[in-house]
Simulated assay, not measured.
Amino acid sequence: MAEIYVADRLVSAGEELSVNQDAVRVVDGRIEAVGMASELVAADPEASVTRFAGYSIMPGLINSHVHLGGDCSKSSFATLCSGTPDEVQSLIRTNARSCLRAGCTSVRDLGDSGGYVARFRDSTDDADSVRPRVLSAGVPLTITDGHCWYLGGVADSAAEIRSAIDRAAGDVDLIKIMAGGGYVTSEGPTPFDAQYSTELLRVAVEHAAQYGLQVAAHAHGTEPIVRCIEAGVSTIEHCGWRSGPGKRDQNEDAVRQMARQGTAAGDTTPAVWRDIAKYVTTPDYKFGSQLTWMAESDVEILIGTDSGVPGTEFDQFKLSMELYEELGFTRGKIIDMLTRRAARSLGIGHETGDLCAGLAADLLVVSGNPLDNLDALHRPHRVIVKGVAYSQDDLVSI
């Protein structure tokens, strides 16, 4: 049976649709039609009709950078690497539901171990069915003793990189490579150091492309970022443009090349970004200003939270959005970045991210008008994934 959802307004691509469009008809988990409620009901009088007075309907949000196997503690991957399968599965299941509570109907998981996230993505177990759409990168590639080496993805040479991609290709949705060091591997290279040469990064990009896979590269520092751009990766995660602690190094030529070739910047702003900003903001640098700079250079920005690593959360996505509003991005732009534009950059625009007939029914029903106040996006009234609707109580009680 068809479901028709009616609200005060529809919001798509960061804009309110015309007053003649206030309803969405869903059949078998997909959007069959978008239009005027009276016409959709007249065309299908047997449909179930649910009206949400005072609410808006919009596409579900996309969190472009999470780690479903992380527990947000200082030893965030301890359970993933040494827990029992049941413990890991329970952790991933809990985190996925928290993503749904935040309105995220799609998430891109950028690194786990042992193939847990891919198995969760594909599980037919009823307990695992309450989940967002999941894109899994599997085990990230890294160098010996490099960033997150303990996840099991060490690949030092071109042959080892190709072999690792060959092994992963049948299970993953993309490839993740640690182009630079990071913060959660204290003994390895610093976040400002490069781990792979441009040539080896290009090997990863070209070999992944043979399987139709994008490459997401972890890079905080300017040197690894520039190498990633030259190698042609699809997204650069963190993308902080720094050459050392407190040292911003924004390369104008590189960012223009980044925009020309369509490499997106995967931002990772956790809910606690205001606390972080207190320690890194200086008279010469405003926290997040590199995001404005990249946007002004026409670089596509993907909003993520890095949820799962220390000090992050899965169900506070709206707090991360506040950084963009503070930086001067309009609410419409932010919503578009979190839906349609993210879907296109991640290669799933044919499936989700918009209110269009034929797409999956990944929808939110939110109080008021999110174009007036982003608070509407916190704890949506209904979260609908592939046509299955959940209330906040549903997601807590399951």
Rank of each mutant, 00 (worst) to 15 (best):
P310I: 09
S12Y: 02
S82A: 11
S18W: 03
R101V: 14
P191C: 07
I62G: 07
A159T: 11
A360Q: 03
G246M: 07
V172N: 05
A231G: 09
M337C: 06
E16V: 15
A179E: 03
S397E: 14
G69A: 12
T50K: 14
A271P: 04
G244A: 12
S48Q: 12
E296G: 13
V309R: 01
C104K: 00
R97P: 08
F77E: 10
I175N: 00
C72V: 04
D249N: 15
S73E: 08
A277D: 09
A155L: 07
G308A: 09
A42Q: 13
A216E: 09
I225Y: 00
T94W: 08
D336C: 12
A376S: 15
T269E: 11
F77A: 09
G111Q: 05
S367C: 09
P283L: 05
D166E: 14
R274T: 11
R331M: 08
G103S: 04
S234Y: 01
L110P: 06
Q316N: 14
E206N: 11
A179F: 03
A42V: 04
P140C: 01
A361R: 10
H207N: 02
S56T: 10
G246F: 12
D249S: 15
E351S: 15
V184D: 14
G262H: 04
S163K: 13
T94P: 03
D394G: 02
V154L: 08
H238C: 10
D28E: 15
K386M: 10
R121N: 11
M258W: 06
D71H: 00
Y150M: 12
S297H: 15
L200Q: 04
E325C: 02
P245D: 10
M58F: 06
I335L: 15
G212M: 07
M258C: 04
K247G: 05
R167V: 05
G288M: 14
R25G: 03
P380N: 12
G138K: 00
E313G: 10
C81D: 00
E16A: 15
T105Y: 00
A357Q: 06
D354I: 04
H381D: 13
A204I: 02
D109V: 12
L327H: 08
F120C: 01
E16G: 12
I225P: 00
A158H: 02
G114I: 13
A209F: 02
R256W: 13
L364A: 13
A219G: 05
D249G: 08
R51I: 07
D306F: 06
V19E: 10
S75T: 03
I62M: 05
T84Q: 07
Q21P: 00
Y183L: 14
Y183H: 09
I175Y: 03
G246R: 12
L359C: 13
T292I: 11
D166L: 06
R97V: 14
A259K: 09
A168L: 03
R344G: 11
M178C: 15
A168I: 01
T124N: 09
D44M: 05
I335G: 01
